[in-house]
């Protein structure tokens, strides 16, 4: 953006042959192109806020109604995995920000390094998520598919969780509502993971394009905009973590 010098005396776009190759024909200047796509990305994130917004509202209301079920449901989540995943995702956000910085500074090697790191951390996040989901599957805590509320009707039957939290048995109708908690858990983390998968896929694309020097020639719009997306996904997790894992641990 910085090295773009233009003759700004007239409004008529004359010197078309001066335009860099990455400028699309319908934009007057590279700046305009950057501004427009950047703003479009922000608007897209706006829609994403509202998209997750519907889930957050559902969560809020169900949590208020079925608070005990939500507390005991959350005790089934591993605080260790959840916290490490938060750390992993925050670190990936950092490496992504550094990746954008490398692109801005025209440093191809650092860009590849940071994009690679972000990719690794993103995959690590999904891996940990898989471990957590798999555990739910084995304990019959996947809603809608052979769900069992035995761990909530009789918490002692689940010694690992019981020795840590000493949960009291829930009344049968409240215990059934833990399925509601797990429904929201899977819907929210699932929707988040879907965004992660798309992000990781795009990271591979960016990595291979970056190897050809695509983003270190001054035109890093795509990396910058992808960074915004990645940080947004991070922010969603920043909220999911306390809402799903930390309802009440004392």
């Amino acid at each position: 953006m910085s090295d773009h010098t233009a003759t700004g005396n007239g409004a008529v776009a004359e010197a078309q042959h001066e335009h860099p190759s990455y400028q699309r024909h319908h934009f007057e200047t590279v700046d305009q192109q950057f501004d427009a796509t950047n703003f479009a990305m922000w608007l897209f994130l706006l829609t994403e806020i509202m998209f997750f917004g519907g889930l957050f509202v559902s969560y809020l209301i169900m949590r208020n109604w079925y608070y005990p079920a939500f507390v005991e449901g959350s005790h089934q989540l591993s605080i260790l995995w959840g916290t490490s995943n938060t750390a992993v995702l925050i670190c990936s956000s950092f490496t992504m920000a550094m990746g954008v910085w490398a692109a801005e500074m025209h440093r191809k090697k650092s860009l590849l390094l940071f994009i690679g790191l972000t990719f690794v951390l993103g995959v690590a996040f999904l891996g940990i998520k898989y471990i957590e989901w798999h555990e739910k599957w084995e304990k019959h805590h996947v809603p809608g598919i052979h769900y069992s509320d035995a761990s909530f009707l009789n918490p002692a039957s689940d010694p690992e969780v019981y020795k840590e939290y000493h949960d009291k048995p829930l009344a049968p109708d409240m215990a059934a509502k833990t399925e509601e908690y797990f429904f929201l858990y899977f819907a929210m983390t699932g929707m988040h993971a879907l965004h992660m998968v798309i992000g990781v896929g795009l990271l591979v694309y960016i990595f291979f394009r970056a190897r050809t020097g695509a983003y270190t020639n001054g035109h890093f719009t795509f990396v910058e905009n992808f960074g915004l997306y990645w940080h947004f996904v991070d922010i969603i997790w920043i909220f999911l973590y306390p809402l799903l894992y930390l309802i009440s641990r004392y």
């Binding site: 910085s2 700004g8 409004a11 700046d31």
Partner: peptide
């Protein structure tokens, strides 16, 4: 306006 001069005054791209 979309004249390049205006745009550049509006915001320099800031590198953090």
């Amino acid at each position: 306006g979309t004249t390049p001069l205006n745009e550049q005054q509006e915001h320099e791209h800031h590198v953090v």
